[in-house]
């Protein structure tokens, strides 16, 4: 049976841990050896909306594995511009490739692609719904920095209302043991109530604070997010909150050596460039981990996992 990765909600903790383990094994393989894994295989990257990082990360992963990449980077470059339906695009492209990564502004598109295609489908973001490869790379990064995810104290900062990255990460963290989440956001961008309720019956905890400094003092890592201008119907409302939380290097004075700052990128003003030079900046390594996790996912979905004996 073919495999897909559509939603974090489809995964059990055991499956998530398997992906993190696989990514760790893939990271240990020298790039020069990775080329032998997928020669002659083709990844189609169907990006109906622009996303430089995610698309390049998928393309880098497939290329490093020795495969090739075809695709488009915006709807204008596809037959959608000529009126073709999404379903027809999938049915056509599956004739050209071995695996498909799809990003689309409409929710449910990745699930639809998985329903109708015989190829493995990787959800690279469907509207405001899911971005599971981002969540897995975030978890991989966190585990790499701290050795584990269980019991960590994690601050989620910025746009907690609209950020699908935050929502998916939250859902995943609830599966781990005793994660304490501190929520830092403007009043108008608080975490939706249904996610707070989802903690019921788990060992996770939520608490809210309006102080970024307090959150830094009392957590192991802060996960910063961009306030997304495109989400605001009224630009005046955006202007009120756009710089609500700006992390500067001076705020990190006195934090433990292992304290980390993560961000899914792109950042605007929420992390000052002076943080980059501190040992706490983890976001560029996080971006690097995106390639590793996507390598692992492509290998898994194509049933080409490296043998366990591989260094």
């Amino acid at each position: 049976m073919k495999k897909d990765l559509i939603s974090i909600d489809d995964l059990r903790l055991e499956q998530i841990l398997n992906y993190l383990d696989l990514a760790a094994r893939v990271a240990a393989i020298p790039d020069a050896e990775k080329f032998r894994f997928l020669p002659g295989r083709i990844l189609a990257t169907l990006f109906f909306e622009p996303s430089t990082r995610t698309r390049l990360s998928f393309e880098s992963a497939m290329t490093r594995l020795g495969g090739r990449v075809i695709g488009f980077s915006e709807a204008a470059g596809s037959s959608t511009a000529k009126g073709e339906s999404f379903s027809d695009t999938i049915r056509t492209v599956e004739q050209y490739a071995d695996i498909i990564a799809v990003r689309h502004p409409k929710e449910g598109t990745a699930r639809r692609a998985a329903e109708i295609s015989r190829l493995p489908i990787l959800n690279a973001g469907d509207g405001a719904n899911q971005h599971p490869t981002q969540t897995l790379l975030d978890l991989y990064t966190i585990r790499k920095f701290f050795g584990q995810v269980d019991g960590l104290r994690i601050a989620l900062v910025g746009d907690l209302k609209y950020s699908r990255t935050i929502h998916s990460l939250c859902r995943a963290l609830l599966m781990f043991d005793g994660v304490a989440m501190t929520l830092v956001s403007p009043e108008s961008l608080k975490l939706p109530g249904y996610l707070l309720k989802a903690a019921k019956g788990t060992t996770a905890t939520f608490r809210e604070t309006s102080s970024l400094e307090e959150a830094i003092r009392e957590t192991d890592l802060v996960y910063m997010t961009r306030i997304q201008k495109e989400r605001f119907p009224d630009v005046v409302e955006y202007e009120k909150v756009k710089d609500a939380y700006v992390l500067e290097a001076g705020m990190l004075a006195g934090v433990p050596a292992r304290f980390k700052v993560l961000h899914p990128l792109p950042r605007v003003n929420e992390i000052s460039p002076d943080v980059d030079a501190t040992p706490h900046a983890g976001y560029f390594e996080q971006a690097r981990n995106g390639v590793i996790m996507r390598e692992a996912l492509i290998l898994d979905l194509l049933d080409a996992r490296p043998a366990r004996s591989t260094p």
Partner: peptide, 29 residues
């Protein structure tokens, strides 16, 4: 949701849990 953009797509709504009156779209969640 893609099922509203392409209305020929069959929809499915799954109950969140037994006894609940809440349902989740199988496509957009």
């Amino acid at each position: 949701c893609i099922t509203n953009v392409e209305p020929h797509i069959g929809t499915r709504f799954k109950r969140l849990e037994s006894g609940s009156r809440h349902f989740k779209c199988a496509h957009c969640e």
